[in-house]
Amino acid sequence: MLTLQCPYCGVQADETELAPGHEAHLKRFSVGSSDEEFEGYMFARKNPKGVHFERWRHAYGCGKWFLAARDTNTLEVFGTYSAQSTEPPADLVAKIKQKRPDWEGYK
């Protein structure tokens, strides 16, 4: 049972106060996109063993969605950040890189 800190209200939330929302930073493809683009948006997920970026909602708290960087293998949490981000913050990426030198990096 994880704990994640909600970046909006600061609560170190218990997993039972959160709702999971799968992979973060998906780019929406809609009308006018190719079948491949749309398929990628709908179905292709990274599902890595290791560093991963996810969406979580502080469902039983302030109700806000936020993003989390986490190691899916060790469950180490590198950080949480605003959902209004198109990619992970640079300092977070640098922190992960430092902790996981072998990580191929975001993207």
């Binding site: 969406r55 909602r57 469902a59 109700g63 959902a83």
Partner: peptide, 13 residues
């Protein structure tokens, strides 16, 4: 309601 908030918070913020 959650679906609406999801789009408002994460896509069209």
């Amino acid at each position: 309601h959650g679906w609406m908030e999801d789009w408002l918070q994460c896509e069209w913020w």
